[in-house]
Simulated assay, not measured.
Amino acid sequence: MRVLFATWAWPSHLYALVPLARACRAAGHEVLVASQPAIQDEIVRVGLPAAAVGQDVDAAGLVRGYLLPSAAVPAPVVPAGPEGRGPRAMRMFHAHADSMVDDLTALARDWRADLVVYEPTALAGPIAAAAAGVPAVRLLYGTDLLLRARGLLPEVLAPLAERNGVGAFDPFGSCTVDPCPDEFQVPVDYERLPMRYVPYNGPGAGSPLRAPAPGRRRAVVTWGHTMAKMSPAHFLAPQAALAARDEDTEVVLAVSAAQLPLLGELPEDVTVTVDVPLHLLLADADLVVSHGGAGTVLTALQAGLPLLLVPQLPDHAGHSARVLACGAGEVLSRDEADPARLRAEVRRLLDSGAERAAARRLRERNAERPAPAELVPALEELTDRRSASVR
């Protein structure tokens, strides 16, 4: 079986594909990951074969247009284009699909793919699969935030589909693979293939941290990759780290090499780790403080840890809302997240058993779900059914 994975050029979206892509390779299948040129080196770094399709899009510039309003940091105003209905980010997803779809369709045909697996915002994926006459599998990276746009997608994508010889098709593909525990997922009206969330937070190395000294607790602070690309004013990791410090609480601040210049002066008792995958830092942690990105949230919950979140983008707000709904943490707006409030919420969450118990329940529910390797036979069955139907 030849499995073509598709994502647009954003690291966290790529990382969400890695566990299932590796499972397919381990089962003896050929795998190829297609995306725009900007992320080709990163695909190679994660250890998967890469193919460049389409042209690069100013993703950071588009994301910047969807920052949530804040009195502290006003968001730029970006006029909506003709694809502006539905979720505000639809304009961005359409731009990426437009960039990728022609080359991705040609690749699916020329490589003779048997299956296309795509993350939910890589909307060139289902078009390429339909053009090649093969099943399309949507692999969620978190809660299904495109569900409310489902009715709009066929119309929005119709010109791109027609350009590649595709008439009617389902943008949600043949099936959806869902890595979220049922309690965490938004209510959906379609059949899903449940999959255990297995953290992959990027290529990197790191030695395990020493456990905190007796009587001390540990808060891990991370602000992902996206917010620092918006502006230093949206990168709240240093402020959060300072607020989390206390005589009985040590802080581990996880950053990328690119974010180091944004940290400023930090006390010696803040441990800074650089380019260490987040899941390697959570074994002895008691709390995660972050921006609310899907990968960070699911990685923390997979470790059974409560979260304090400050979302500044719509998808971060969506995942933060699910954390709140499950009782596994607290959410502050950008304007609420002053040092005093951050400090108070860190103290409350470290002392509270309710959020910790809720996070541990989600960890248990995740562990009950099938591992990525257990989904490979279901993918094989999809291609077998397709082969039988064309014979």
Rank of each mutant, 00 (worst) to 15 (best):
A325R: 13
P19D: 09
A124Q: 10
V156Q: 09
V44K: 12
G28T: 12
P19E: 05
L298W: 02
A51R: 00
G84K: 07
L298E: 00
P79T: 04
A344C: 05
A244R: 04
A161G: 09
V186H: 15
L236H: 07
A52P: 02
W8C: 00
L313H: 13
V63E: 10
L309C: 06
A130H: 00
R385S: 10
G125L: 01
T176V: 12
L266D: 09
L379T: 08
R363V: 00
L62F: 12
L152F: 14
H94Q: 10
A254S: 15
C175N: 01
V323H: 07
P179V: 06
D144Y: 03
A211P: 14
L382H: 00
A161I: 07
S387K: 12
P181G: 11
H96V: 02
A228T: 09
L263R: 06
P194Y: 06
Q40I: 02
D315G: 11
G295P: 07
R365D: 10
M227W: 04
A294G: 02
R347C: 05
G329E: 11
E355Q: 14
L375I: 06
H29W: 11
A325M: 10
A71R: 14
A328N: 08
Q40F: 02
R245Y: 03
Y197K: 06
L308F: 11
A75Q: 08
M90Y: 06
Q302L: 01
L266T: 06
R348K: 12
D144V: 04
G295R: 00
A354Y: 07
S99I: 02
D98P: 00
E268C: 05
D144M: 04
P203E: 05
A321G: 11
T271Y: 01
W10L: 09
V57D: 08
G54D: 03
L324S: 14
A108V: 01
V117P: 03
L242G: 10
L146Y: 11
I39G: 06
P199S: 04
V134P: 00
L160W: 14
G292V: 08
A388D: 13
S389M: 05
D335Y: 00
A59P: 03
G151A: 13
A228H: 13
A131Y: 04
A325L: 10
G167Y: 08
T222L: 05
Q302R: 15
Y190R: 15
L104E: 10
R109C: 15
V255L: 03
V46N: 10
A205C: 05
S12D: 15
E83D: 10
G125Y: 06
V73F: 11
A80L: 08
V272T: 12
G81I: 02
F235K: 03
L107N: 06
